[in-house]
Design a protein around this nucleic acid. Structure first.
Lengths: 253, 253
DNA sequence: CAGTGGTCTAGACCACATT
DNA sequence: ATGTGGTCTAGACCACTGT
């Protein structure tokens, strides 16, 4: 019964069938045949389409599910994952309540200025010293408690036409805006955390006292080819929240 | 051919067979029947032992491989994972120099005591309030500068025979010791970071001043099946180092 | 060569969701 | 009742390893 039948898929010699099936499914999604939120044909149909058995088809779908491309729902079907704003947000946002629960932060826009890159910013953003940068200031709250003040630096060259009006009225996350309006996809972030003491101006914004301990989170966001696109300095009052990076899970092989 | 046969494993109604097989393999490792580095019996032998088909057995082994408990080598066999010291260390150690370079910390053992679990520790470690815990204190240095004091809590039941002498003379990382001497493999950690002010006793150890800002890192380490095995409280002076979690990388396909 | 893991088949029954 | 994904079987051949 185990005679390998001639199949519809182009199977590279030395490459497992299920890898090729996985590739073709991913390709069909990329090409727009199945769009985010769509349901795929049933597993039986897919078996016929690719000329493989249910076990092989499931192995391909298993991996696409594990990597978040597909979502299965027993009894309903298999769907192309919808990368919602929520998911995007919580990929990069690492502040949680003291009880560990993740929540939406409320963002209040403070200011947009244009400044010149200092030594540190120019190095982090790979621009020349003195290059023009947008400097955005935001105030973030969790459950009505002010938790952090964010200072964001963007090379003006990458974000032409960014205006204060646009920032004040935005309804999406910043990263969503980078992608939708400037074609910049953030694919990697790197963060470093220090302890520091509240300054007088921070104390006013964060409703705390000068000298109280704060977290300083320095984040650099990168697009494709490790191009830095955003430098962000967050000063966090951990009285009402905590910094929680993604858990580490040991991997082998 | 698909008649479900009577099997050797105790299959809970409503729980898949492969889950039970996975549990029994993990249990055999925990009990010491197979130790890190050992090879398991062949898949065919395991099928007979558990009374399941090759597909089911492989699904169980697949998951244990994915979670790092087992390592497969084609043509040679399946082995209980052995965690190398270097890799292990930097997987869990997130302090780097202010210049961003990773380095080995120097660890100085301070004390080992036995205490009773308070509310927080008992909750984190999934033991009863008042249960006995080992409490280890260590002082960590980077490049000769004292950077943090670690307070470590372990359920005594999981670490029978742990002695001060053993901790003072150890040459490996703690996690390596958990594995080699107590059969406990750490496969996941979760961390939370807060800002706090230096206490007087911390100031003495960290050679800083009371009230100066510190990072408090609360880490819980888990073994198989999300069993918590260690709770750790690190108080870090970020004058000479920074906390740097693993970078986030957006996954595509 | 024999033994191992890696892949694959062609079914089957079960649990769940929708109609 | 029908259709979906979830689990499971009892084989088979292939690729790789060590003798």
């Amino acid at each position: 019964m185990a005679k390998k039948s001639v199949s519809n898929v182009w199977s590279q010699p030395g490459s497992p069938l299920y890898i090729e099936v996985r590739r073709q499914i991913a390709e069909a999604i990329r090409s727009g045949e199945w769009r985010p939120g769509d349901s795929l044909p049933s597993e039986k149909m897919l078996c016929e389409r690719f000329g493989v058995s249910i076990g092989t088809l499931r192995k391909a779908v298993d991996e696409l599910t594990a990597s978040g491309v597909l979502v299965r729902q027993q009894g309903r079907g298999t769907f192309v994952a919808r990368h919602s704003q929520d998911r995007y947000l919580f990929s990069f946002f690492h502040l949680v309540g003291r009880d560990g629960h993740k929540e939406y932060p409320e963002v209040r826009f403070l200011s947009l200025r244009t400044i010149e890159a200092d030594d540190f910013a120019s190095h982090a953003l790979a621009v020349n010293i003195g290059s023009p940068l947008f400097n955005i200031s935001n105030l973030l709250s969790l459950r009505g408690e002010v938790t952090s003040v964010d200072d964001i630096y963007l090379p003006t060259a990458l974000f032409p036409g960014l205006t204060e009006e646009r920032l004040r009225t935005r309804k999406t996350t910043l990263y969503q805006m980078y992608q939708d309006e400037f074609g910049i996809s953030v694919v990697r972030t790197s963060e470093r955390v220090r302890g520091c003491a509240t300054t007088r101006s921070q104390a006013r914004l964060l409703k705390t006292t000068p000298g109280a301990p704060l977290l300083q989170i320095i984040r650099c966001a990168y697009s494709f080819h490790d191009q830095p696109v955003e430098l962000r300095n967050s000063y966090v009052n951990t009285q009402y929240c905590e910094y929680q990076p993604d858990p580490y899970v040991h991997e082998h092989n």
